[in-house]
């Protein structure tokens, strides 16, 4: 994927860049309104991560420019404002998704992957990963054409892992992804373990490799080429 990160906060920008680059994506960055405008007018990206609160100008204008010029780039808005108005405003202007700060990088990756998948596969709804075939529309998973019955949460978790393959995903990130951040069962993530155990069991019973590994008690890692 080719990604543009427009974010004025240097620390956050660097983290995002590193996370995406390490996963094998091409990641460019812009720290301000002007450089962002210059980049979106010159190059095309699979997805633009757009912080709408930039010091020199409103990020919404960048989104408007993209849409006015009919650029096909996917847009994910990153905002510190968790207001419904902003969210609706952004989505109405043509943004593909809206993520509120602070977020986990794995969550960002999952969202961006979903956007890019929708854009590039152009209506095709099959996600292939080695022996795994995932029908995104029917929400069905097959291993070597053999259907695996996953629960809704297990399915969501599998997609999350595939989007973040090769990365250690923290338990916090998993919990927030599956249950939303409204659920604060702090420091008690045992229930995640049983989900993971179930997915592994089901996939391996269907003949898949064992991709999910525990990572130093902090989280899990989906390994695979």
């Amino acid at each position: 994927m080719k990604i543009l990160v427009i974010e004025d906060e240097e620390g956050l920008r660097e983290s995002i860049e590193e996370y995406f680059s390490e996963a094998g994506n091409i990641c460019e960055t812009a720290g301000g309104y002007q450089s962002a405008m210059a980049k979106i007018n010159l190059y095309r990206y699979d997805c633009v991560l757009l912080d709408i609160t930039l010091p020199e100008g409103n990020g919404m204008n960048i989104l408007k420019t993209l849409k006015e010029n009919n650029h096909p780039d996917g847009v994910l808005i990153i905002s510190a404002k968790n207001s419904l108005d902003d969210r609706l405003n952004g989505l109405n202007l043509g943004a593909d998704d809206y993520l509120v700060k602070p977020f986990h990088l794995s969550e960002l990756m999952a969202r961006v992957s979903a956007i890019v998948r929708r854009k590039t596969f152009n209506g095709s709804n099959l996600l292939l990963f080695n022996e795994l075939t995932i029908d995104l529309l029917a929400k069905e998973v097959k291993v070597h054409d053999m259907p695996v019955k996953l629960t809704r949460k297990e399915y969501a978790l599998l997609l999350y892992f595939i989007a973040n393959k090769g990365k250690v995903v923290s338990k916090n990130a998993i919990a927030e992804h599956l249950w939303g951040d409204g659920i604060d069962m702090a420091n008690n993530f045992d229930f995640i373990y049983s989900h993971i155990k179930n997915i592994r069991k089901k996939l391996m019973e269907a003949g898949s490799n064992d991709y999910i590994q525990a990572a130093y008690g902090m989280g899990y890692k989906f390994t695979g080429q």
């Binding site: 956050l12 996370y19 794995s106 990130a173 130093y216 902090m218």
Partner: peptide, 21 residues
């Protein structure tokens, strides 16, 4: 929000650096 976001992302980055005891 922004500093929390930075801490969060740095933590996410940090755990990618393998080999923790």
């Amino acid at each position: 929000l922004t500093p929390i976001a930075v801490i969060n992302s740095k933590l996410d980055t940090l755990i990618q650096t393998e080999n923790f005891n």
